[in-house]
Simulated assay, not measured.
Amino acid sequence: MRIDIEDLHVAYAGRTVVSGARLIAAEGEITGLVGPNGSGKSTLLRTVYRHLRPVAGRVLLAGGDIRELSPARSARHVAALPQERGGDFELTVREVVAMGRTPYKRAFAGDNATDRDVVARALTDVGMAEAAGRHFTALSGGERQRVLLARAFAQEPDVLVLDEPTNHLDVRHQVELLALLRAQRRTTLVSLHDLNAATSVCDRLHVLHSGTVVASGPPREVITPELMADVFGVRAAVVDHPLTGDPLIAFDHRAPAGRPAAPALEAGTAG
């Protein structure tokens, strides 16, 4: 399923955080949101998974306003991994992941064979099958992150919305997670701080700055030295990765470009 965000305006705590955002997450593609801290990435994602209601504009799922769906029906289509991970669950890992099956159940219904198979597969996908019987509270931060991602997979959604999914993961598990996302070819909208990870895994990038989408397109077209200076305030070169051929951003740590300027780039079209 495709996500279309049309002229989205979102306010949070009395302040406009996203202003006039237009972008697309195409079916089967990984679409990345990048930008400095405070640029509106998380707020935009919260609107997609219905944690926030927009002041104006719409989020469309396969052409229909997502807010017109019931919460249960919406949860069958869209699964989210937010930055706020929730409290400590007094549950086993398997029980936490099984929570992802809730949209498919009647109240108080137990797990059936399909549920158990889906949960087992999700745990295997994130490399946590052997921890299924452990308590969630006994896990490290990175292990918890993978379990919560498995819970999102267990929803069997058409769309994944992931806010900084590589947080707390070591390098190996970051690489494995990004490879898993690419292999699934599920419509995915993801925010990433690591720009090199974003250029490697994403089919399309949308760059946010001060709540506005200032550039959109394939990573090789979007990530330029000029954008790195204007939006992120750093001096950088963009070269080919020696192993993959993906765009690789090399930062000049000795001569930073200075503070980011106000948005000066023409907003990219999300077509």
Rank of each mutant, 00 (worst) to 15 (best):
R2A: 12
I3H: 03
D4N: 14
V10A: 04
A11I: 02
Y12Q: 07
R15Y: 08
R15N: 13
T16L: 10
S19M: 10
R22K: 04
L23Y: 05
I24V: 11
A26G: 08
I30K: 02
T31L: 04
G35C: 02
P36S: 01
S39F: 08
T43K: 13
L45Q: 03
R50H: 01
G57K: 12
R58N: 07
G63I: 02
D65P: 15
I66G: 02
L69C: 05
R73L: 12
H77Q: 14
E90A: 15
E90V: 09
R94M: 03
R101D: 07
R101V: 02
R101S: 06
T102R: 07
T102C: 11
D111M: 12
D111S: 13
D115E: 08
V119E: 04
L123E: 02
V126K: 01
V126T: 07
A129E: 09
A129Q: 07
A132L: 12
T137Q: 15
A138K: 12
G141R: 13
G142N: 13
E143G: 00
R151F: 11
R151I: 05
L162E: 06
H168A: 14
D170R: 02
H173W: 14
H173D: 10
V175H: 14
E176V: 00
L177D: 12
A179V: 08
A179T: 13
L180G: 05
L180T: 06
S191A: 14
L192S: 05
A197L: 13
T199A: 10
V201S: 13
C202D: 05
D203W: 09
D203A: 06
V207K: 11
V207S: 11
L208N: 15
L208V: 11
L208I: 09
H209V: 04
G211E: 12
V213C: 12
A215C: 10
E221A: 13
V222A: 04
I223F: 10
P225Y: 03
E226A: 09
M228S: 00
F232T: 03
V234Y: 03
G245L: 07
I249V: 02
D252K: 09
R254E: 15
R254V: 02
R254M: 05
R254S: 12
A255N: 15
A261Q: 12
A261I: 06
P263M: 13
T269P: 07
A270E: 05
G271Q: 10
